[in-house]
Write a protein that binds this DNA or RNA. Structure first.
Lengths: 245, 245
DNA sequence: CCAACCTTAATGTCAGACCTTTAAATGTCT
DNA sequence: AGACATTTAAAGGTCTGACATTAAGGTTGG
């Protein structure tokens, strides 16, 4: 683990990279303890604040955790699915909001990925997954729900569908695609009629999953995508007209 | 932007969270300049090193960039696809390697997602995407290629396939799934015969994409998944036997 | 034998200083 | 007047040294 003093990059960035590489390559295994900050400072020939900045960078990526007190220190962190979900969602959300990704593009990606899960979910879903889907459908059909609550329930429904595939890697990948769409979906005002249509489509998907009918679930998702795209187009058109006037 | 002095969490973590929330919520827009480190220290009533640690956390997530010199400072960063890819790949790779995700699970997720892209890619791929796929196939059929180079070419082939869908969000999501598999694939020793089989399957997929035949591309990917799973099972069985003996 | 205390090794935080970079402002020459 | 060189100030990057806080482990007294 050495650094290049001639590089233009920050020392803390270089040190973080050196340690990160050691972790990713497997040289530092899970729960291994790094040298203390003072020792790292000596090894890299920098001061302790610089080492600390490097460690904070790694902590931000959940690569390490720190513990105070005697026999404390920085330890290589086992990246949990929870943490990975969180990072995935944050990154995806920012990517969508900052790069003016069109609703159409994001929506297409989301449903394409979700359709990939549907056959697996239809095959393997537990009664629990199905119950969650039904519960969310019920919530969505209640009157007086705010648009945001409706969207949140929509996300919960789709997460249950994805989780039904019983593949944590798939759930992780989809978390970003589904959750990051929520801010975009929140721009849509759902009329009572469009809510009814969505609830109906959700019900069809849940029925298909219950019947272990993968193809029908895929078809249901395709219909839902078409409906969602229609809805968005309507909202965008209306907004454009009001701007013109 | 206020912090809770009674919290058990690090001050730098709290400050990072406060600023991150401001960015994600849109209160701080792209290219907005944060107050200087000294000003932030005053606002949050902490010292400059603490502020710096918070800023490094954000820099690690590519949420901000810093610039030295007069009129420099920390600016909200537009998250580029490149940076997002990188983070996605790092996180996915660690998630797979640290949680002893089975090859089977990861492989299933990867191909499920990739099949979701195939129809779109068959529809929209440019001549360039197709040329990349053909070039990688050619590289894969050359003798004397190391297993690692073969795997790298395999990844390049699949990325071209995914990019063919012309949906950057999809490419971003798939980057993690495809690249993170590489370390797992590297555990497999490819015999000449299995390489031939893979090249043949790749050729079939490329042919389907060239013919704008989505369903055939999906079928090709399914065959490739089955073959890859077979290969892995063989390797794992052989390894288990040698451990017993 | 167990509980309260102390020691100690870490991280967390602070204050102040100095170095380096950078762009804007100023000055000078043609 | 305009182009080029110089100065300057603002801001991040780094260092030093110190103190506060925490928690594990040993020690001591009941």
């Amino acid at each position: 683990m050495k650094i290049d003093p001639n590089s233009t990059a920050d020392l803390s960035a270089q040190i973080a990279k050196a340690i990160r590489d050691a972790i990713v390559s497997g040289a530092l295994i899970v729960d291994a303890r790094l040298p203390s900050e003072a020792e790292l400072a000596e090894q890299f020939e920098v001061s302790r604040p610089t080492v600390r900045e490097a460690l904070k960078r790694l902590a931000a990526q959940s690569l390490i955790r720190t513990q105070r007190g005697a026999f404390g220190g920085a330890f290589v962190n086992r990246l949990s699915y929870e943490e990975a979900y969180g990072q995935q969602i944050t990154t995806s959300t920012l990517l969508l909001s900052m790069n003016s990704v069109g609703f159409e593009t994001a929506c297409e990606a989301r449903f394409a990925l979700e359709r990939a899960c549907a056959p697996l979910s239809a095959e393997r879903r537990s009664a629990d997954h199905l119950a969650t889907m039904r519960a969310e459908i019920h919530r969505q059909s209640q009157p007086g729900l705010t648009d945001e609550a409706f969207c949140a329930s929509d996300v919960a429904f789709h997460r249950a569908l994805v989780d039904g595939a019983c593949n944590p890697v798939l759930s992780y990948q989809l978390a970003g695609a589904v959750e990051a769409m929520q801010p975009l979906m929140n721009m849509i005002t759902f009329t009572a009629r469009s809510r009814d249509a969505i609830v109906e489509l959700h019900t069809g998907i849940a029925d298909a999953v219950e019947a272990h009918d993968g193809p029908r679930a895929v078809a249901g998702l395709a219909s839902l995508e078409a409906h969602t795209q229609d809805l968005a187009r309507t909202v965008i058109t209306a907004r454009a007209r009001s701007h013109d006037g």
